[in-house]
Design a binder for these strands. Structure first.
Length: 428
RNA sequence: GGAGGGAUGGCAGAGUGGUCUAUUGCGGCGGUCUUGAAAACCGUUGGCCGUGAGGCCCGCAGGUUCGAAUCCUGCUCCCUCCGCCA
């Protein structure tokens, strides 16, 4: 959520910033509602003050033997006027809220306008492995190696699902453990949240109302509007940890990480090039998250990207880091870096981590503040999130980048203990 | 799932239609005293809206009334007991 004061005072500037995302927004109507809202508040406040004093006087006058019927009659109409104004106010505020809830975040100053074609590679690690044979794709590899069972995954969950088995399950689990250990060492607190969340969580994160079609909603009980949903990322849980709280400044930054599967509809997003485990309805991810003071968030973002990169380096994978253009950043995010791993068969880099600074956008939606000791004032925190990492995109990269001519795969050193072997060989 | 009880400030806990401005205690913060600390004493102590005067907030939403923490209705959550259960 943007600060409506900013729009009130600087509508053109806000519109220009949103235009970097390719969004054309007209604030004229909003500003009319905003004006009406404030006028309503002014009048209601005035009338309530009058009612309050008169109502306090009535018992005194009665005691003094005076007739209060006229005053009571007058207050009755005042009460009705207040009620009418409050009705109007609620109407206007609902419109303002609906409008504001649909607006995406302002891109940070240094984020360039335009779509993903304007993303900029800021650095790369390693180089694409050179094969003196025709490399197989990960679907062939993991199937031959017996790591992933696509057919039975579909039998269980339908299209868009798979299951890990044997060494594949061990490797996926080993990746998760490797990340857990690294995050603990970096001072992040481990959270295992519920996977089923209430609607307010999606609102705070910024998924609702705009992106409600992207998540799986649970059928509520008959006659009840339960409005639970399966989280599309652990970020949705972690941003809500401190919803409606006022944090202590000396406890910031708060650093958390969580492992959850991520459940996404991915409706209509299937592409032939994304077979296998590149895109599914459920995938594993460890997410890191920080709550910081506003002045600390820019540095925190760099720190989180560097941390995500160190995980990749620990696996010996070739990757690059891109800084996203405005329109490619998530709606809640002011600035985003993607860490993208090389998938040889696709000859493409695919996102395995997305590290973002939401500034105060999510904090405002969730009323997450901290008390600044120097001023005694409450301020909104900044929130940041980064995948650390999306394991389900990593396993394809590991087998493709680590494959050898005979179809075997070298297990990254960091995972050998978990998998129990150095080389994975085709089964049968 | 059944039965009962409850929701008031950081916590505990009064208040059942209008004298207060929602008692009081604890905790927190500041001070006095002290070599330092404790104790004692004094002061202070939330959120939201509004340029401001001021207004709103006693779980949430409605209603009754000149006036609601208090009365009425609906909802949510929590606790206790029973049942079921990984």
């Amino acid at each position: 959520m943007l600060d409506i004061k900013l729009i009130r005072e600087n509508a053109d500037e806000v519109a220009r910033a949103l235009a970097k995302r390719g969004e054309t927004v007209d604030f004229a109507e909003l500003l009319v509602w905003d004006k009406e809202r404030r006028e309503c508040i002014g009048r209601v406040t005035e009338l309530r003050a009058r009612r309050k004093t008169v109502s306090a006087d009535i018992p005194k006058l009665k005691k003094a033997g005076k007739d209060t019927a006229a005053l009571q009659a007058e207050m009755k109409t005042v009460g009705e006027t207040i009620k009418n104004l409050e009705g109007r106010l609620a109407e206007v505020e609902a419109r303002i809220d609906a409008f504001m809830a649909m607006l995406p975040n302002l891109p940070a100053e240094d984020v360039v306008p335009g779509g993903k074609e304007h993303n900029a590679v800021v650095r790369t690690f390693g180089a694409p492995p050179a094969f003196d044979f025709e490399p197989r794709n990960h679907v062939d590899l993991v199937t031959r190696l017996g790591l992933v069972d696509y057919e039975r995954g579909v039998k269980l969950g339908g299209n868009g699902f798979w299951l890990y088995r044997d060494d594949g399950a061990r490797m996926e689990w080993g990746l998760l453990n490797y990340f857990v250990e690294r995050h603990l060492a970096a001072g992040y607190e481990f959270i295992l949240p519920p996977h089923i969340l209430i609607h307010q969580c999606g609102y705070t994160a910024g998924q609702f109302p705009k992106f409600k079609d992207d998540v799986f909603h649970l059928q509520g009980e008959e006659g009840k509007d339960a409005r639970h949903f399966l989280l599309p990322t652990a970020e949705t849980a972690l941003i809500n940890l401190h919803r409606d709280e006022i944090l202590k400044e000396d406890r910031l930054p708060l650093k958390y990480f969580a492992y959850t599967p991520c459940y996404r509809k991915e409706a209509g997003s299937y592409r032939a090039g994304e077979r296998g485990m590149i895109r599914g309805h459920q995938f594993n991810k460890v997410e890191i998250f920080q709550y910081t003071r506003p002045e600390d968030s820019a540095a925190a973002l760099e720190e989180m990207v560097a941390h995500a990169e160190s995980l990749m380096q620990g696996l010996g994978l070739h990757y690059r880091v891109s800084k996203l253009a405005a329109a490619d950043c998530g709606a809640s995010m002011a600035k985003t870096y993607d860490v993208e791993v090389w998938i040889p068969s696709m000859k493409e880099y695919k996102e395995v981590s997305s590290a973002s600074n939401a500034h105060d956008f999510q904090a405002r939606r969730g009323a997450i503040r901290f008390r600044r000791a120097a001023t005694g004032q409450n301020e909104l925190v900044h929130t940041l999130n980064a995948s650390g990492l999306a394991t389900s995109r990593l396993l394809p990269a590991i087998v493709e980048q680590g494959q050898r001519k005979d179809g075997s795969v070298v297990v990254p050193e960091a995972l050998r203990a978990a998998v129990g072997k150095e080389i994975l060989r085709p089964v049968q």
